[in-house]
């Protein structure tokens, strides 16, 4: 089994934790896992890409272009920026809430959302788009966006391991204070996709 997951978002959105949770769940399911992050200079607000490679000890830490099985996009333009790593059979889960870079607010660059969303759909065999922030807020905090998106991916059948295993991994790996919030966020994600 080989399964590669790419996570793309903006610094501060919790992408790194999401990649660690997926890898930990894969290890629990008995697979070999590797992850890698590309993070720029900024503490928050820059592009962040995480690679999760499941199943092969021989794999390098970075997913080659055109081979990822799943893309979890935390922000539409970041999903579009990285979708070339997705395989033709690859699927995506994308949060639709836009995070405008300062450059876009200063009117030096444009951010047109419709062609970006269309590009994601065209280059993905199956796409789930949702307002993840609204669901995370409903679960108690926008900080739980990452776990909401994991819930959606799990309920859509996009992940190679059981959703209950993933839930228990989430509970084991977050601070005890936030277990309830994350449980709720994960289930909000699950239910969204079930509807």
């Amino acid at each position: 089994m080989k399964f590669d997951i790419l996570i793309a978002g903006v610094g501060g959105q919790g992408t790194v934790l999401a990649s660690r949770l997926l890898a930990a769940a894969a290890i629990k399911a008995g697979y070999y896992a590797r992850t890698s992050e590309t993070i720029g200079m900024a503490q928050r607000g820059g592009c962040v890409v995480s690679h999760v490679r499941i199943g092969s000890e021989e794999a390098s830490p970075i997913i080659p272009y055109g081979t990822a099985d799943l893309l979890i996009g935390f922000e539409p333009s970041e999903a579009a920026r990285n979708i070339n790593r997705l395989a033709p059979s690859g699927r995506s889960v994308v949060n639709t809430r836009v995070i405008k870079p300062v450059t876009a607010s200063l009117d030096t660059v444009t951010y047109a959302i419709d062609p970006i969303n269309a590009f994601i759909r065209t280059n993905s065999s199956e796409t789930v788009m949702l307002d993840g922030y609204a669901l995370a807020e409903k679960a108690g905090s926008v900080k739980a966006l990452n776990v909401v998106l994991l819930g959606v991916a799990a309920a859509a059948g996009f992940l190679p391991f059981d959703k209950d295993d993933l839930e228990s991994i989430i509970c084991e790996n977050v601070s005890p204070r936030y277990v309830e919030l994350n449980k709720k966020a994960f289930n909000t994600g699950l239910e969204y996709k079930r509807k």
Partner: peptide
Amino acid sequence: GEKSPAVPPELPVRPPVLCA
């Protein structure tokens, strides 16, 4: 054997910034 990648629409650049 690399096929040429799909060309995305104009994407906003996101340079690193000082945090809010």
